[in-house]
Nucleic acid binder design. Structure first.
Lengths: 295, 295
DNA sequence: CAGGTTCTGAAATTTCTGATACAGCTTTTG
DNA sequence: CAAAAGCTGTATCAGAAATTTCAGAACCTG
């Protein structure tokens, strides 16, 4: 349902100005380590990082002033003021042509493996958001914000990492949070204490894993509430799940992309944190304190 | 160089920007003749005219340098640098706003919670791709595609999950892949066999974790090649890293978003899989066969 | 592991910019 | 029209910023 030629039309006019940023990117590999640090700082806050003084720039990049000077000299400028002048002019030109803002990254040949992959992932995220009912999302937030519930995260061989990611955040925001390994041998005995007050949040995408399904079915049978994050074709777990949040996962790769699942996870973490802020804040501070003590 | 209290806030001129330009327009009447000339120049090339030197500005406005100084003083700035700083910040805020502008529906907070979060994440992904040199990315792909190398993934308390995610994929594509827990006690003894042929892929974002840094430094000292996936502020690991891939992580949440890191990870997996396809395909089939047997 | 090369930062040096004092000019006002 | 007040520019200075130097450190390379 998406595009043939990767969002084909984009007016190439802008300026055929190679844009300093682009040049830096393409020459990145030829830079020395400290030049790379300078380059990264500049690109990450382009072009504002370069408008400060040499000293400021150097300190923010974590290198010395002379290294900064060498960096701009290497880029072909006669000195730092010359470099800044170029940045200002480029910025002015760019601001005057509103449309030029779009990424000029499609100039290269078929090389942008990363860029085209990113576009596909972004498409997935958009599609994911569109296909989820806000009410469903909110219902899950409410469920996970209930302090009386016990939350268990689990997932398959790839999605297990996402479950861990979720668990590592929720653990800090609230209590009664844990991670369950997918292998039956590891959770069978824990099932005795799973009941009505428990919530299982399962991650499962195609090549659905039988053991995760089994876990959810067992938990459901004992009265637990199951939340499922899956792909649009729905894991069999959907049959026992109270809430289902599907994410688009197809990418130009031999593998599926979990970015949509991560998006949902992070959005849930953000919303629950906000909802529980009164209790979450002291908790987070306490965790922080404990971490610092240990050093 | 970081922040107090959970980094929730990022300082920027933010909302109610009266914009210096507006104020100048409204006070124009009260200016002296030469101040008016300065004001007109500034407004006609706002704000770039103000980013030059005093002398340049004075000359372009057809007045003397001291008049320019008096002008900015009258506007309430402590000096010319102060004035320029304000212009830069205003400009930066304005240029960055297009992203915030994306979600015009901030009225309630029911539905848009997910949607606006998604927009922010998408912005991060775009910015991440923009700031990575294709050559750098390709270099990492090449490194990870070398069958003679041994690849170790590691990460911090949150990013560790991403390292696991990476490991679970690479493990299938190629051999000599593993995951290292961040705690020093768990890796100290493994370090004896880390050497020149090893590659450490570390995930580390702000609230950089000392144990992960220590691991990378130790590995680096023993000749291993370090690849770092981090945020734009660069983990201290960057010091010893051969390759650095920074991802934007700021989201409308109390937490940082790892979506950019996941994007990079998946893109690396996709590229390496393609590059090693001849050997990866049989491997993947074999893995599949083994999994099916077990049932 | 030595010898050579490259890279890097501390400190000295130079350049240049922003700031100020003061005198001349213009405008205002009685 | 004269005196006062207000502007403005020239000349100068102080200080900050960029640049260069140089020695030590890191990194190759044979």
């Amino acid at each position: 349902m998406d595009q043939s030629g990767m969002h084909g039309d984009r007016r190439l006019p802008s300026t055929d100005a190679p844009s300093l940023a682009e040049r830096i990117r393409s020459e990145m590999e030829s830079f020395t380590p400290s030049e790379k640090r300078a380059a990264h700082l500049l690109l990450s806050h382009y072009p504002f990082a370069g408008l400060d003084t040499v000293a400021e720039f150097a300190s923010r990049a974590g290198i010395s002033a002379p290294s900064v000077l060498r960096f701009v000299t290497r880029l072909g400028f006669s000195g730092f003021p010359d470099f800044q002048k170029h940045l200002r002019e480029e910025l002015e030109a760019q601001l005057l042509s509103p449309l030029a803002k779009a990424s000029p990254s499609d100039k290269g040949q078929g090389a942008p493996a990363l860029a085209s992959f990113a576009e596909a992932v972004i498409g997935n995220l958009r599609a994911t958001v569109e296909n989820i009912a806000p009410a469903e999302f909110e219902a899950v937030v409410t469920l996970l914000s209930d302090p009386r519930r016990h939350i268990h995260f689990t997932g398959g061989r790839f999605t297990g990492a996402l479950a861990r990611y979720a668990e590592s955040h929720f653990r800090i925001v609230r209590s009664h949070v844990d991670f369950i390994e997918g292998q039956p041998a590891l959770w069978r005995d824990r099932m005795v204490e799973i009941g009505r007050r428990d919530v299982i949040v399962a991650f499962d995408i195609r090549r659905y894993q039988e053991d995760v399904t089994a876990l959810c079915e067992t938990a459901s049978r004992q009265g637990a509430t199951v939340v499922l994050l899956t792909d649009p074709w729905l894991s069999p777990i959907a049959r026992v799940a109270r809430h289902v949040l599907p994410a688009h996962i197809v990418a130009p790769s031999n593998w599926d992309s979990s970015a949509g699942l991560l998006l949902l996870t992070e959005a849930l973490v953000a919303s629950v944190t906000k909802r529980l802020w009164d209790t979450a804040k002291p908790r987070m501070e306490a965790v922080e304190r404990l971490r610092n003590e240990r050093s």
